[in-house]
Amino acid sequence: MQDLATAFATALGLVATADPAVTGILLLSLRVSLTAVALAALVGLPLGALLAVARFPGRRAVLVTLNALMGLPPVVAGLLIYLLLSRAGPLGPLGLLFTPTAMVIAQAVLIAPILAALSRQVLEGLWEEYAEQLRSFGAGPWRAVPTLLWDGRFALLTVLLAGFGRAAAEVGAVMIVGGNIEGFTRVMTTAIALETSKGDLPLALALGLMLMAIVLAVNALAQGLRDAAAGSAG
């Protein structure tokens, strides 16, 4: 109990003093995870929409694979990206290992399957409703994809938030490809892991509370946006 109280006090202190080191870590967390979500969305959402409308041999296998990839352990994703980006690996000359860009890539790889699988599920219901009408308008599956993405935008926002939550919370992948370098690739989760290993449990917990507050704030912002927009577009 003592530790919990200390953690809350420490968290408040960090917020109140706007500790520059902590602020930097927080901003990097946001920057990396939001960029990763955007990148993953660029691939994952259209893929999900296409899987919702397209019928082709092997579709079931693709869906099963995608669902399985939702459980991809972050460490494994991190390791794959590490081997790709390592100077001894195929993308080594880019010099991206141990940079925020590498962390963005790893998180994007981690959450793209989640975005694809969840958006497929969300948009399939919408497609069932729209399919006949869109075909009557002469819209084939390819043309239906942007329509579904736009009309499913509010449900997809929830999908994106799920992806963001996963990205912001994971530590395994960013630790491996980012290296937890102070002032450069240290994000909230790796900082929490570091403080835990230094035995400063109250500080680790305080950082954890701040991370949760940030994720909560992003969710609230998105929800508010959704409500405001839904009021005008139904």
């Binding site: 920057r31 990396v32 939001l34 960029t35 955007a38 141990f98 940079t99 925020p100 860009t101 935008r153 290296g179 370098i181 450069f184 946006l225 405001a228 927009a229 005008s232 577009a233």
Partner: peptide
């Protein structure tokens, strides 16, 4: 709709900022 569009623009601006690499000072690992 205008709210959503404006927010999307803001988000795009944020991502543009986020995507830019940190100033490449001389550094070693």
């Amino acid at each position: 709709m205008p709210i959503l569009r404006r927010t999307l623009l803001l988000l795009a601006a944020f991502l543009a900022w986020a995507g830019t690499a940190t100033a490449q000072e001389r550094s070693i690992t």
